[in-house]
Nucleic acid binder design. Structure first.
Lengths: 209, 209
DNA sequence: ATAAATATAGTAATCAATTACTATCTTGAT
DNA sequence: ATCAAGATAGTAATTGATTACTATATTTAT
């Protein structure tokens, strides 16, 4: 009666569902120990069926990283698009990044896990190129922020870029550890406020609680 | 001739060696996928021998977390001990923490790995209590920093504490990803400079490059 | 009817843990 | 001082469970 009927779904959509399943599972367990059986169970399939859609597990991971890179960068770009001020852009990017992670807690864990691994997988290459792209975009933004006078002239641009990314990573880490993504959304603006104060020109009194 | 003779080593020292072996291995591979066989090989023992000294794998992980908590906190305390100024203490803690991680890259990976896991292991409890202790110490320091006028009155103390820890975590993450611990040592003072600028009273002109 | 999607039922490899046994220290009665 | 007896630390082989992956049969939508 309550026996779930296995649905027939076209291959491409099934691949998308697989990616979502992995990200979902990564939200509550170590990405490296997600088994193909667990993925299959989560999407109500048998384990063997997965290999009709992916040649091997690495290919699944590659697809997941691709999804993360594409969606994260798109979201950040969209957030910054209509803002002219460099610091305004940076704030929008920061908050958009946090919002994305709050929506998909498994995403950063896949990223970290893949980037830390010793093995040089296709997924790792994707992750690395995304990080490079991200860092480059940031450096440009900081440079133009100094040029237009929003940021301090004596600001260490490289350190500021490192801190921007590091702040996000640290915030994400702490929230994932606490198992509370709402905390992340709540903390993000307050923490960015301090960061902004650290890089801004002295005169600008960006008020804060 | 050159055949390595299996040495007999007293149980307690053998347990210490095991902990070091795990932290060593965690420096270059995912902690979650460190096998007992790999640990044994690294310390030139057979796999089964490990279970003469630990009842199970969880007990090994617990011993490792204990080592990390004890050594990290001791190092931070020692660094801050002889400094009176709150911001001075914070800087010393920051740099001591980074130095510890640079010496033992496997340590933070064990920490993160354990804190992220869904399973409530003895190791996880240890890690959580250490983080609580750390955060509490920080909050006190920030509060007294505001009282003595080094820090802004309108500073969001909780956000500042979150950012302090987050900055370290982010810095560590990026260096581990890059596989370059020297980068971490080099970046730390510059990044802390920006953080300090973010929390300090406006008047204080902490010079920076 | 046919082809794509899934189920069923395997494989070899690897994992933590246990076993039976051996080698080496340590100790206390003589 | 010596040396059997017990304690300690090790090996080698094996266990049952779990892993990624595969071969083949069955179902279902068109």
């Amino acid at each position: 009666m309550t026996k779930t009927k296995p649905k027939k779904i076209p291959a491409e959509e099934r691949r998308n569902i697989t990616v979502e399943a992995v990200i979902d599972l990564a939200g509550s367990s170590n990405p490296d120990s997600i088994t193909t059986a667990a993925i299959a169970k989560h999407m109500k399939l048998t384990q063997g069926a997965i290999f009709r859609h992916f040649p091997n597990k690495d290919a699944i991971w590659k697809a997941v990283m691709n999804w993360v890179a594409k969606n994260l960068m798109a979201r950040i770009d969209r957030a910054a698009k209509d803002i002219t001020s460099p610091t305004g852009k940076m704030e929008a990017m920061f908050l958009a990044h946090i919002a994305f992670v709050a929506d998909h807690p498994g995403a950063p864990r896949m990223l970290f896990g893949e980037l830390q691994g010793a093995r040089q997988t296709p997924a790792k290459r994707l992750a690395q190129s995304m990080m490079k792209q991200y860092a480059a975009r940031l450096r440009d933004m900081i440079t133009s922020g100094k040029e237009c006078g929003e940021l301090r002239d004596n600001l260490d641009a490289e350190a500021a870029a490192t801190l921007f990314i590091g702040t996000i990573q640290g915030l994400v880490m702490q929230s994932l550890i606490a198992g509370d993504v709402d905390k992340m959304r709540a903390d993000a603006p307050r923490v960015f406020g301090i960061y902004l104060h650290g890089i801004s020109r002295a005169g600008d009194a960006e008020e804060q609680e």
